[in-house]
Computed example of a mutant assay.
Amino acid sequence: MEPSDRIALTDLAARYAQAVDRRNPTALAALFTENATFVLPPALNGTDGPTEIQGRATLSDSIVGAVAHLHSTRHIVEQQVLDQDSATTAHGEAYCSAHHIYPRGEGFRNNRIEIRYQDSFDKVDGTWLFSRRELVVDFAEDVPVILLGS
């Protein structure tokens, strides 16, 4: 894989985290192919099996809608393993610590979820995009937090 492709794919994961944390469905949709698939595991969708969301507009609205009720989120992208399959396709796995801040009683709590994204990418008109993003939950914890600043 060329260094420029590796940088572009790493940037794509960071931009995804930023778009979710800023609740920006337009920015989020721009990171996916037109017919992209996003897969939520049973641990996050409240069912017995995975849920697939298809189409960039639908999935971007669904992802932003899923965090809209929270005070804030912070997705910290950690290591990323990337492999190029062809000149226009690649796959990889990105580790992420996802922080979900919500009010509880007189304070706030953080539902921290350690996740991995199993990704497939397509290069469309010279730009790498997600064609499939499958979320895997490794573990979670719920802890009190103190919010500093505004």
Rank of each mutant, 00 (worst) to 15 (best):
P3T: 13
P3F: 11
S4R: 13
I7N: 06
A8H: 10
A8K: 12
L9I: 15
T10I: 06
T10R: 09
L12S: 00
L12Y: 01
L12Q: 00
A13M: 14
A14E: 13
R15F: 04
V20N: 05
N24F: 07
N24Q: 11
A27R: 11
L28K: 03
A29S: 13
A30M: 06
E34D: 15
N35D: 15
A36G: 12
A36Q: 03
A36T: 04
F38V: 13
L40H: 05
A43T: 14
A43G: 10
G46W: 09
G46E: 12
G46M: 11
T47E: 15
T47P: 06
G49K: 12
P50Q: 12
P50G: 08
Q54R: 15
Q54P: 00
Q54T: 15
R56F: 05
R56G: 03
A57P: 01
T58F: 00
D61Y: 01
D61W: 04
I63T: 05
V64E: 06
A68L: 13
A68Q: 15
H69F: 12
S72F: 07
T73K: 02
R74K: 12
I76L: 15
Q80M: 13
Q80F: 13
V81C: 04
D83C: 10
D83H: 15
Q84K: 13
D85F: 03
A87E: 11
T88K: 05
T88V: 13
T88Y: 01
A90Y: 07
H91D: 11
G92E: 06
G92W: 05
E93G: 00
A94I: 04
C96V: 14
C96W: 00
A98P: 11
I101R: 01
I101C: 03
Y102Q: 03
Y102H: 05
P103T: 09
G105H: 00
R109P: 01
R109H: 14
R112F: 01
R112L: 12
R112Q: 12
E114F: 14
E114R: 14
I115C: 14
R116Y: 11
R116E: 07
Y117Q: 10
Q118G: 08
Q118E: 15
F121G: 07
D122R: 05
K123T: 03
G126V: 08
G126L: 05
E134Y: 00
E134W: 00
L135W: 02
